[in-house]
Design a protein around this nucleic acid. Structure first.
Length: 257
DNA sequence: TGGGTGACGACGC
DNA sequence: AGCGTCGCCACCC
């Protein structure tokens, strides 16, 4: 630990022991590069509070008022966040992402367990206009039987919308639950072009995979928005598709490797 | 510490 | 065909 950092930490500790002002605490944490800041940003679900740390975007939540948001933030992440008027570069990127632009940005997942982080990183890989089953996440992170635990981890997603947990659905292609309510999950997915009703109907009739003969592969029915079409054969199981000489799609990886 | 608890899934009527 | 049941596993008091 550098001498400067040690002195700053001591100063912070002294000053928090006195009931120091919010602003003083915030500026001290800023000097240490530790403070999370937050601002209100518009999204598909209206205004939301977005927080970021020097490491990346750290939280997103709907809240009645700043106090509600701060209470939730402290409970969930075990540290404090402070409001700011000046938008950092990170906040601007978050705003663009929430406006629908496909931009990459760092996330700060301190406060998540390794398992939760693995689930969230995997959910980040799901592109716009796609969806994957909970069981798919479990298989991809090498915990194939931890399907319920995947649900719990997504329920705890500190950064919904920006980490697109709404793209994780049940194996029967009903939506499953969502932090902002199942109807919003459905709305978001349909907004991205997915025809979930149609796909759930097919699933009810036993359809699990869709072939794309032009690419010589077969997919999950939610691998993009254009799969449900007459020229694409339906399969009840992977064997049928493999028997036709089709390969598992390398984007949606429909079966275990 | 260990038993209770889920944004699940498969199976049985 | 939809609903109840039960197994599953990470996490939390």
């Amino acid at each position: 630990m550098t001498e400067r950092l040690r002195i700053a930490l001591e100063s912070y500790r002294r000053n928090t022991q006195r009931a120091c002002s919010r602003e003083f605490a915030a500026s001290t944490l800023d000097r240490l590069g530790l403070a999370d800041r937050y601002a209100v940003v518009n999204s598909a679900l209206g205004d939301v509070y977005v927080a970021w740390s020097p490491r990346g975007i750290s939280a997103l939540r709907q809240a009645e008022n700043p106090e509600t948001f701060e209470r939730w933030f402290q409970k969930r992440l075990r540290r404090r966040a402070f409001p700011t008027a000046e938008r950092s570069e990170l906040a601007e990127i978050a705003a663009r992402a929430l406006a629908g632009e496909e931009v990459d940005f760092p996330v700060d997942l301190r406060g998540c367990t390794p398992f939760e982080a693995a689930v969230l990183w995997k959910a980040r890989e799901i592109p716009q206009g796609h969806a994957r089953p909970y069981a798919w996440i479990a298989r991809e992170i090498d915990h194939p039987r931890a399907v319920r635990a995947v649900g719990s981890a997504l329920a705890n997603n500190p950064i919904p919308l920006l980490i697109p947990c709404h793209r994780v659905v049940r194996s029967d292609y009903t939506t499953g639950d969502y932090v902002f309510g199942a109807p919003n999950k459905r709305r978001l997915l349909e907004g991205e072009g997915l025809h979930l009703n149609e796909i759930a109907d097919l699933a009810r009739r036993g359809v699990r995979y869709i072939g794309q003969p032009e690419d010589n592969c077969f997919c999950l029915p939610t691998c993009g928005t254009n799969l449900i079409a007459p020229q694409h054969p339906c399969f009840h199981n992977a064997e049928e598709a493999l028997a036709m000489g089709l390969e598992p799609c390398t984007v949606c990886r429909p079966i275990a490797a």
